[in-house]
Each structure stands twice: as structure tokens, then as C-alpha cells.
Design a binder for these strands. Structure first.
Length: 376
RNA sequence: GGGGGGAUACCAAAGUGGCCAACUGGGGCAGACUGUAAAUCUGCUGGCGAACGCCUUCGUAGGUUCGAAUCCUGCUCCCCCCA
């Protein structure tokens, strides 16, 4: 068994655990910084490890396949070696690009035909070849190819889309058995639940996925524009069906409040571009609330970025200085913003883990959710 | 001393009788961002007002005209060339 739950909350469905990979253990709940093209934008690997203690990061099959390409990846000896990162990596399969690059692709039962957003070249992604690509990348957790159903979707379309994802899952699982890791470490394969915002579809999908008995399971197609309440409702339905003893990964979520609520509903793993993208654009999640560091009111505020923050940037630079960097369009500004936000996210999820273990999670979560949505 | 060109909002710059409170950039102010085609995108930026709108503006003082940033005259200032 690769996943071990070490604590279960009595008041909520939250739990803590450890997922063991050949690149090290992942304590859950966990937030995974997004490093789409073999880089968590603006952040050194050294800072991810030494400063903010990231345990696992993401890469992306579609993006890395197009550039630098699999020839380079083979020569490099896989993504870990290529990017000098020897901790766990999860690679998304390209399912999200089916959603976000919808104008550039066509779907059928076999897979997805993509037109490269870089040079217009055509590529065909299948449930099978995205496994091959992820074998070449050597990620610790490979994701199944899915269709991330857009919101809103009519019931019939959502059902068809879900069924496509299921059929791709079966093909992927069949192919998985005929492949092996190229670099001597074990690679998990996570299937993905779809079903849009329809209760019964989510139940069907969760049951379908659960039955495959994979080492972990993912929930996709959420945080794509639906009301937050709908997301929580779907999560509750799905987590009620997914095996309790396997990690549950909510893909692409979300705001700090979203993550805490999802933890309370029994979710273990999260990734989101929000800390890096928003941090790069001047929006900071701090222990006191959300701030837009570009705002004029910070121009002569020489207090630390976040005196309760957990990155060296929080204890080194003032708000006034960081605002100056943003206003002056200095690249250090977005770098500091990104690192700060990542540190906040990682702290938040670590703190949730501690509170669960201390039996204090529910009240703490309530307090935090309120604080986290405050703009200051 | 002679000749020529110019003065538009915070800056630069378009506009040369009505469609002009005035294009566009920059700057400024604010907002968005959820498995990253994003270090990106959007809105506002004379005053008052939520808005219809009203009021004051294109160096300055007059004038022509139903109507002037735009045409005419005086003045002030700036730039270029010749002496």
C-alpha cells in the first residue's frame, strides 16, 4: 500500500496521510505548485525545496511534448533529471488543454487531435500515447487522458463527455500494463472523475473510477466556472464514493478557501496556478487577507510583506519595496509575489494537516475561510 | 537684425469650422486571474454626478461666425536657419 492515512478528523471528512513515492513521501493534504513547462514560473528549484518545502510539483504532457519534445526528454533522462528536481512530479495528461485550447483540437473515440499553439503542427493524443509520453517524462504520478467538460454543459453533452473519458480510461489502463517505467522508479496512474455539475453523472463516474482500483483518484472538471457551492456539492458526492484509503486529488483547485473546504470534504491533493499567476500579477494572499500590492496605499508602507509569512521574501522585503518593483515592472516583483503566494499556500495546507491531527480543524477552518476572503 | 516653424489634458502627440471633453501612446488609478497559449488581460483617467446631464478647457487678449482647438489680429514664450 502506497498511501497510508494516519489521522481522520471526527467533525469533518478531513484526514491526513502519507503517499509514498520513489522520490520521497508526500504528506497529505498537499498543495502541488504548477510547473507546466518544467518550471514553476519565476521560482528556482532551490527555493521550492529549501525555502518553502514543496514536496511535489506538476508538469504538463501537452506542453512538454511540444517543447522541448520527447527526444530531448529521453536524452535528458527524464523530467526529473532535465529540470534538476529529484522530488516527486505529477504530470497532467493534456486533458486540461482539451478544455483550454478547445479551438485547436478535435475529439473522437480514439483521442484528441491538437494543432500546436506554438507552430500549428498537428498532433494526435490518445489515452495510450499520453502514457508513453509520461513514461518518457518519468513522472511519479501519471494522469489519465480525460476530457475536462466545460461549464455549463447540457446534461446530454456532459454525459457523452463523461463516457468518452471513461472509455479513454479503459484504453489507458489496458495500455498501462504493457508499458514500464524507463528510469527504475514506480509511476502511479490516476484516473479522473468527470460528470460536470450533475449529481447522478458524478456518482456514475466516481463509481466507474473507484472500481478500477488505481493507487489514487482524481476529480476533474471542477472550478471551470460553476458556482462554488456546486463544486462543493459535487465533491461531497464524489468523495462519498471514491475509496477512502486512496488519495483524492482535486484538479486545478483553487482559492485558499476552496482548498480548506475541499480538505474538510475529504480531499487530499491540490494544484492550482492561482498562487503563481496571481502572485505574478500583484495579488497576494497573506495571513491578514488578500492584498493588491500595486495599490497606491502600499507606497509608503514599510512593514514586511507578511510578518507571519513563511518565505524568506516575507521576512526580507517591505510592502513599499515590493509595490515599487511591480510599478517599475522589475522582474523581481513577480518573482517575490509568486514565492510569497506559494509559501502561503504550502503553509496553509501544512497548517490544515496539523490542525486535523490536533483535532482543531473545523473551528480553525471556519476562522481561516473568513479571514482569507477579506480584502485589505 | 532678417526669415521660418511651433504652443492641445500629468507627459508625448493627433485633430485644422459643427460628428470634440478632444484619436493614440506613456504615466496614474482600479479590477480580473482556479489540472498556465497569461510576468497577461480589462476598465477609468478635466470638474460635479449612480446616471440622463450640467459646468470649465486646446499659450494669452480680442475679433469673425448661428457655431472656433481649428479662421483673423495683437501680445507672451519656445525651437530652427541666416546675419
Amino acid at each position: 500500500m502506497h498511501f497510508k492515512i494516519d489521522h481522520t478528523d471526527t467533525e469533518t471528512s478531513a484526514r491526513t496521510g502519507v503517499l509514498k513515492t520513489d522520490h520521497g513521501p508526500i504528506e497529505t493534504p498537499v498543495f502541488m505548485p504548477v510547473g507546466t513547462v518544467a518550471s514553476v514560473k519565476g521560482i528556482h528549484q532551490r527555493d521550492l525545496i529549501n525555502d518553502i518545502h514543496a514536496r511535489i510539483i506538476l508538469g504538463n504532457t501537452y506542453h512538454l511534448f511540444l517543447r522541448p519534445g520527447m527526444d530531448i526528454m529521453k536524452k535528458a533522462g527524464g523530467l526529473h533529471a532535465f529540470m534538476a528536481w529529484d522530488k516527486p512530479i505529477l504530470t497532467d495528461s493534456g486533458g486540461y488543454q482539451i478544455f483550454s485550447l478547445a479551438e485547436n483540437r478535435k475529439l473522437n473515440a480514439e483521442g484528441a487531435e491538437f494543432r500546436s499553439h506554438i507552430d500549428g503542427s498537428k498532433h494526435f493524443f490518445t489515452p495510450e500515447n499520453v502514457i508513453d509520453i509520461q513514461r518518457t517524462l518519468g513522472s511519479d504520478i501519471m494522469m489519465a487522458l480525460d476530457e475536462c467538460t466545460p461549464y455549463p454543459s447540457e446534461y446530454k453533452l456532459a454525459k457523452t463527455s463523461m463516457e468518452l473519458t471513461h472509455s479513454w480510461l479503459d484504453k489507458g489502463l489496458k495500455h498501462l500494463k504493457n508499458t514500464a517505467s524507463l528510469y527504475g522508479h514506480h509511476q502511479f496512474y490516476f484516473p479522473i472523475v468527470q460528470g460536470s455539475t450533475y449529481n447522478d453523472l458524478r456518482k456514475i463516474s466516481a463509481a466507474y473510477v473507484a472500481e478500477k482500483n488505481c493507487e489514487g483518484n482524481a476529480i476533474g472538471g471542477l472550478s471551470v466556472g460553476e458556482p462554488t457551492e456546486d463544486m462543493y456539492e459535487m465533491l461531497e458526492v464524489v468523495n462519498g464514493i471514491l475509496p477512502i484509503d486512496k488519495p483524492r486529488y482535486l484538479m486545478g483547485v483553487g482559492t485558499p478557501a476552496n482548498i480548506l473546504e475541499a480538505i474538510a470534504l475529504g480531499t487530499d491533493m491540490f494544484d492550482c496556478v492561482m498562487p503563481t499567476r496571481n502572485g505574478r500579477n500583484g495579488m497576494l494572499f497573506t495571513s491578514e487577507g488578500i492584498i493588491n500590492i500595486r495599490n497606491e496605499k502600499w507606497k509608503d508602507d514599510f512593514t514586511l510583506i507578511d510578518e507571519n509569512g513563511h518565505s524568506f521574501v516575507d521576512r526580507t522585503y517591505s510592502k513599499a519595496y515590493l509595490r515599487h518593483l511591480f510599478v517599475s515592472k522589475e522582474m523581481l516583483g513577480p518573482q517575490i509575489g509568486s514565492l510569497h503566494n506559494l509559501a502561503f499556500y504550502l503553509w496553509l495546507v501544512d497548517e490544515a494537516r496539523r490542525k486535523i491531527q490536533e483535532g482543531l480543524f473545523k473551528d480553525w477552518k471556519k476562522e481561516m475561510v473568513l479571514k482569507l476572503s477579506t480584502r485589505i
